[in-house]
């Protein structure tokens, strides 16, 4: 939206009311009402993803793979072709798609239980094969969909329904840093950790997702974008408290920033 549009906004008339149009929902989002809890990072991630797809003009050549988790219905919300994978298997499904349709943009959208517990094997081997796909990893430190059990990413001491006294790392293992784990693999081309709890963070996440699509054209491996997110319902917090928890606790253990970036030569090739 340029300045001119801001100065002379479009008017929308609904009944007796007149509104100024200052922001429009991406047309890649369907009109289906999101089922996510108020304040949930999944909604923000969906909208950012839709905006990128719209702005890049690739709606007709993207195939998404939805996980099992709260975002199992992602295909109801983004107006693109989708496949719904079994729990943990999204990267294997995406491999099957991308290998048969190498010219299309393929991405998975997965939670931490899906990607880093039951699907760890598929994740690592997909990255290790350097599949030319984007993996969007929504890390909210908990199993949202099944109502708040401990995830492999739950922080030390974090109370969940299956770590009711807090995560005891000696008994239950340590929170796993998937981005750092997979970044050294040669098949990982771009690895970054972002978040969606502030407007500025959302803008950076958007840029990262755009990169993740663009880099597929280079054919040099996986773009892995971790998004540290919240789960207000199962964290038993208000949306605002949960965003503060991201800032004060999650990001301490899962610091935001690029972990692996393309070389200058790679980027030259892209141009």
């Amino acid at each position: 939206m340029d300045n001119k549009e801001l100065v002379t906004p479009q008017c929308i008339v609904e009944g007796d009311e007149t509104y100024d149009l200052v922001f429009e929902k991406s047309h890649v989002m369907t009109d289906t009402r999101l089922h996510y809890c108020p304040g949930c990072g999944h909604s923000v991630a969906h909208q950012v993803l839709a905006e990128v797809i719209q702005e890049m003009g690739i709606q007709d050549s993207v195939i998404g793979v939805a996980p099992v988790g709260c975002s199992v219905f992602a295909y109801d919300y983004l107006h693109i072709d989708w496949q719904e994978a079994a729990h943990g298997r999204a990267t294997a499904v995406a491999t099957g798609i991308k290998r048969c349709l190498p010219d299309k943009y393929v991405f998975t959208y997965q939670g931490d239980g899906d990607l880093a517990a039951i699907g760890t094997g598929e994740t690592i081997h997909c990255v290790n094969r350097g599949e030319n796909i984007m993996i969007l990893f929504i890390n909210n430190g908990v199993y949202g969909m099944t109502s708040g059990q401990m995830a492999p990413t739950s922080l030390e001491g974090m109370k969940t329904t299956t770590s009711p006294y807090g995560r005891d790392v000696h008994m239950m293992g340590y929170p796993i840093k998937v981005s750092e784990l997979i970044a050294p693999l040669p098949g990982a081309f771009y690895v970054t950790r972002q978040t969606v709890h502030t407007p500025n963070a959302v803008r950076k996440t958007k840029k990262a997702i755009e990169n993740g699509f663009k880099y597929q054209k280079l054919g040099k491996g996986v773009s892995f974008i971790e998004i540290v997110s919240n789960c207000p319902s199962n964290w038993k917090m208000t949306p605002i408290q949960s965003n503060q928890f991201i800032e004060n606790e999650m990001l301490k253990y899962y610091p935001v920033g690029d972990i692996k970036v393309p070389s200058k030569e790679d980027l030259k090739e892209l141009k």
Binding site: Q83, A94, T95, G96, I97, G121, H125
Partner: peptide, 25 residues
């Protein structure tokens, strides 16, 4: 294409993806 997967769990899910993409798999 013939691809060695990391397990039968992965192979069958790759089949799912490829079949869903319209391939004879």
């Amino acid at each position: 294409l013939a691809l060695q997967a990391e397990s039968e769990v992965a192979s069958i899910n790759m089949v799912y993806g490829a079949a869903g993409a319209g391939a004879r798999v």
